[in-house]
């Protein structure tokens, strides 16, 4: 195994508040890692820093041995990191299929000339984009199949929007996928389904997965390793059992609740 992602000493401040305060973590290739922590612990901020949405104030982020600090989000996506958002962000007026097709953008190249003249190479590429998009939608079985693919994304149910967001991320053909609370707002059955999908991402697609999750059944079911954060720092990591019984973690959850 090799280190796919390595975050070292990352600090990210918003005004006086350090959302990430010297965060250190790494992810091995082929691992499923859960990131847990109370609200405001800095989990989403971690994803935003890794994907280039926010530049870190200090520290380094390495992907596959190479520093990606300072790269634009689309460059990082092209290197092989895909993500979903905590609050779903689809291209609401594009069809389900088109949403997934946008994911293929970074793997294809035809430009204005190709668009206007449509030489065979462009047509083939367009066919391929469609193919990959269909395949990533098919990851969720019948959920996003058939007539739904021609519907605009905004008519989808909430759970399907989450699935489509993941399918769009899969269509970028990533090596590492970052899922920000993929089961938020889902009912228990859909949550269990999603748990299985997360495992399938690694087993069938060979992806490395980092997932932020509040639902402990999911965390327990998928994680090779659990990382618990609080105040922008890692407070515990290891197996689910170890982290769940770590006094600092319990204190973080309970203490916060008692104050709140």
């Amino acid at each position: 195994m090799s280190r796919l992602l390595e975050v070292s000493g990352v600090v990210k401040r918003f005004g006086g508040l350090a959302a990430l305060d010297g965060l250190e973590l790494h992810v091995e290739e082929g691992e499923i890692v859960s990131v847990i922590g109370p609200n405001g612990a800095g989990k989403s901020t971690l994803f935003n820093v890794v994907t280039g949405l926010y530049p870190p104030d200090e520290g380094d982020v390495r992907f596959d041995g190479r520093s990606i600090v300072g790269l634009r989000p689309h460059q990082i996506t092209k290197l092989g990191i895909a993500r979903t958002f905590q609050t779903v962000h689809l291209f609401a007026n594009m069809t389900v299929l088109e949403n997934a097709m946008v994911g293929q953008h970074c793997r294809t190249r035809s430009g204005v000339f190709g668009a206007i003249v449509r030489p065979p190479s462009t047509r083939r590429e367009e066919e391929r984009i469609r193919e990959v998009a269909r395949r990533s939608l098919a990851f969720f079985g019948p959920r996003l199949a058939g007539y739904r693919q021609e519907q605009p994304a905004f008519v989808l149910s909430y759970a399907n929007r989450r699935r489509l967001e993941i399918a769009r991320a899969l269509a970028t053909e990533p090596r590492l996928i970052l899922l920000d609370e993929p089961t938020a707002g889902m009912n228990p059955r859909e949550t269990l389904e999603m748990r299985d999908h997360i495992v399938r991402m690694r087993d069938e697609l060979g992806l490395t997965v980092v997932v932020i999750e509040h639902d402990m059944r999911v965390v327990k079911g998928v994680s090779d390793r659990v990382i618990a954060c609080d105040y922008g720092r890692v407070i515990a990591q290891g197996t689910y059992e170890a982290v769940a019984h770590d006094p600092q973690v319990i204190e973080a959850y309970l203490g916060r609740r008692a104050v709140g």
């Binding site: 996506t77 088109e98 946008v102 430009g111 590429e125 984009i129 769009r168 991320a169």
Partner: peptide, 26 residues
């Protein structure tokens, strides 16, 4: 022709949500 192409799709995504389009590789 531009509207129904990879380029048109990228513009469309950008019009819908610039930051997300960027994060998706546009």
């Amino acid at each position: 022709r531009l509207a129904w192409s990879r380029v048109g799709r990228a513009w469309n995504a950008m019009r819908e949500d610039e930051q997300v389009a960027d994060a998706m590789g546009v």
